[in-house]
Amino acid sequence: MKTTIQPRDERTQPSRIIEGYPQTPLRNPKQPLVKRAPTLSELTGPVEVAKRVKLLGGDIAGHGDKQAIGQLIHLKVRVLDEDGAPVGGAVVEVWQANGAGRYIHPNDDEHAPADVNFYGAARVVTDESGAFQLRTVKPGAYPVPTRDGWWRPPHIHFSLFGKVWLSRLVTQMYFPGEPLNAQDRILNAVPDAAARESLVARYVPPAADPYNALVFEHQIVLRGRAATPEQP
């Protein structure tokens, strides 16, 4: 049950300071980050968070006369480790804007309408195959209050608890074919093209779907590999 963590290729991770994102130069360290050899403390972590927080389920689009407005989507996500092994039992927190690009949050201004049938938060646990599913509406794009023409493309936020402290991940997922993807300052802060591409969900051509929704698939890879057992 041991996990090993190797350093990442920095090009696969976003720059900490982003031009045109005014909060980043104030909130990220100036001093060099300190290298350390991981100890048991960082190679363990909370694996029973599901016993501590309230799960909300993954169906957040509403039903009957309480349906959220927007394009209904069925998102199928798999959570894997760096060996491609499924990460089961992982708590995943999801949040997103409504179909008009509005969050239910005091920080959002009122540029777009709230939807009384959409709060936009799911909290689920991955199954043994590392999978979880969402029934939701596709989030709308919205303008960032920098007022200089930066719009966030449609995206969904994820926070994941992996097997160990160092595999904790906060990330965002994007949709294929969105013109705003090419100019988004957060997505494009990741230098490596393949790493950026892996943040974009895959569109699945229409077929029979239990939710009668447009289907997208996505994959999230958490840091870490199962350590090879030591020879006796």
């Binding site: 894997l80 906060v170 950026r196």
Partner: peptide, 9 residues
């Protein structure tokens, strides 16, 4: 596999 890129919360 390459671990997924982080992003701001």
């Amino acid at each position: 596999m390459i671990s997924t890129a982080e992003a701001t919360i």
